[in-house]
């Protein structure tokens, strides 16, 4: 891999956090689904036994939250809403059709990715709070039974929404070729960057021609 022709998009610590989180999230999501859809109860085998799954699910969930909190700190500055995001919304049809014209002044993340970012961060926070309320044997005894009932309902809804968002996220990464390599190796090709994130590409190029340093 000739890194001179590539652009570093995601640093090692971010990639490592992302993929550890993916593994934890898979286990937490599958065990969660095993309780939400009882006919899929076998999915809790991801943690060995139903009893172990019940014990480990919340701890792994907290790991997912902590890793997401770290990634939030790393990525939030690229995910703030900007005026240029409006162009993406206006052309969302072309974006979904896979058309690369016209250039949409897209920064490091496009508007859809930003929505995903805030959706994931919001939902994991809701899952953390509602999860603490229903977490036995440690925290649930501190809460009233009516609040635990609300916690169970909210936790289920937020969990379903998050899994749906993640399915969308994983699909879009699979659809836009080169994205997964960006999260695995950290590098994307110059043409990938220019095509999908034209404004970010220009910023990187300007910085490189100025200082010769990659970001």
């Amino acid at each position: 891999m000739n890194k001179d022709k590539l652009i570093l998009r995601t640093r090692f610590i971010e990639r490592a956090s992302h993929w550890v989180m993916v593994l934890c999230f898979l286990a937490v999501a599958l065990s969660g689904l095993s309780w939400f859809f009882p006919s899929l109860n076998g999915l809790n085998a991801v943690f060995g036994t139903p009893q172990l799954a019940r014990i480990l699910h919340p701890f792994f969930g907290v790991v997912v939250f902590l890793l997401l909190a770290f990634l939030f700190v790393r990525f939030v500055k690229y995910n703030l809403p900007e005026r240029e995001d409006l162009a993406w919304f206006r052309n969302v049809r072309q974006v979904l059709a896979g058309e690369h014209e016209p250039a949409l002044q897209i920064g490091k993340y496009n508007a859809g990715q930003k929505i995903l970012f805030w959706g994931i961060m919001g939902l994991i926070s809701v899952l953390l709070v509602s999860g603490v309320v229903i977490w036995r044997p440690y925290f649930a005894p501190w809460f009233s039974i009516p609040s635990i009932r609300i916690g169970l309902l909210v936790h289920a809804i937020a969990g379903i929404c998050l899994i749906l968002l993640i399915i969308g996220h994983a699909y879009l990464a699979f659809w836009v070729k080169g994205s997964i390599r960006g999260m695995v190796t950290g590098y994307v090709s110059r043409s990938w960057a220019k095509t999908h994130h034209d404004r970010w590409y220009r910023q990187i190029s300007n910085k490189q021609s100025g200082s010769g340093k990659q970001q």
Binding site: L96, G98, K177, G178, S189, S191, K194, T195, H196
Partner: peptide, 16 residues
């Protein structure tokens, strides 16, 4: 329906 979203070969070559 839409097919994979790939970067044009020509672009890739040009960039390189």
């Amino acid at each position: 329906g839409v097919g994979p979203n790939e970067v044009e070969e020509a672009d890739e070559k040009h960039e390189e």
